[in-house]
Amino acid sequence: MNASDQKRLLREMIFYRRFEERSFEAYMERKIGGFLHLYSGQEAIATGVLERAHCGSDYVITGYRDHVHALKAGAPAREVMAELYGKETGSSRGRGGSMHIFDPTVNFMGGYALVGQPFPLAAGLALACKHKGTDQIAICFLGDGANNQGTFHETMNMASVWKLPVLFVCENNLYAIGTRIDRSTAVTDQYKRVAAYNIPSSQHDGQDIDIVMAAATDAIAHVRSGKGPYFIEFLTYRQRGHSMSDSNAYRSKEEERLWMERDPLKIYGDRLKKAKVLTEKDIAAMEKSVLEEIENDIVRFAEESPDPRVEDLNKYCLDDQPDPRWIGPLAQGEHHG
């Protein structure tokens, strides 16, 4: 990877961190409502995996901690922030909010609030890719907690039997909401669990984007070659609570401190400094430009955008322009019996 790509990746991760922190501020100002699940600490995974995918062509789907996956997949940051603000210009026209970012123009097929629900949806997207005979794949990002749903087992089985081109990315941040993995899960190494379905898998450090990219390259090559699904587990940690109301009382301060030291931005920034790709001063300038972009362009766009019109409440429930050939009206008296 050349120096300009390395700098771009570091800037992207810094951008994602500051985007999440800025949305936290807006939440505290009550400009963002509902639930808000932040990705801080896990940036290397979405950034690294999708760096190796064909964004815009490959399908990407995830759970409710979805802002960064949508951004890296290609959803415009203005629209993602506007969605958090519930605005008509948002990714989902203000109807979805933080947990339901969609941008089908880049094949980002959504964030979902039902834990484990994206497993079968991802397999279905992959089934469509296979059926159409394109070289597209589906990439499903979910946490370790999702693996205790029935959909995990059902979908792994079908994806394997039907050799679907789907990459399952498990972001193991050790906690299913507030319950630690060893208290909820019989096999804590998640990659081992898919052996039951004959799916190849591996486990890697999720804090180092170079490791993530190397692992993703191999996994994506496997899936794209038509050999069927692959399950890749990354060990990571979310720096904030599960959602906004979470005090993290279930985690020890010592554990948090150890993982904070393994911050993906710090790991990558230090490496690039050591390799003389950039200096501390360059990183500071990067931080400054990111903050300016977020404040002056992205947040401003969200704040200045209009709310959806209440008159449009019923819009998008069903197809708003249905074909009368399929829908009706029904001609009376044409048929008896």
């Binding site: 991802a122 279905g124 089934l127 079908m158």
Partner: peptide
């Protein structure tokens, strides 16, 4: 639940 979900996912892709 999951084969229905697979159908739904496939429908989202055409």
């Amino acid at each position: 639940n999951s084969y229905t979900g697979i159908g739904i996912g496939a429908s989202m892709a055409g």
